[in-house]
Amino acid sequence: MFEVDVLGLACPIPVVRVQKAIAAHAGEVLLVKVDGATPKEHVTRLAESKGYSVKAEEKNGEIHLELTPKT
């Protein structure tokens, strides 16, 4: 699982990083670490538009988003 750590990065950098990761690791499951509701929403919107399902989990103040390509 490829990991994208965008903790502490302000809008819109998390979306840019995840977009690059999606392009570079097409078809792979991605783990995206964000630290707030706004990047969570933006990344989720991007991932869903790119055909991924998103599972969110809170861990020690971080939000871990598992992006799984829909087959």
Partner: peptide, 17 residues
């Protein structure tokens, strides 16, 4: 809602959203 008068244009061109 995260309304933003800059982000609205940025997201159209950056992520087609």
């Amino acid at each position: 809602t995260r309304f933003c008068s800059i982000g609205c244009w940025r997201d159209i061109f950056l992520v087609k959203n």
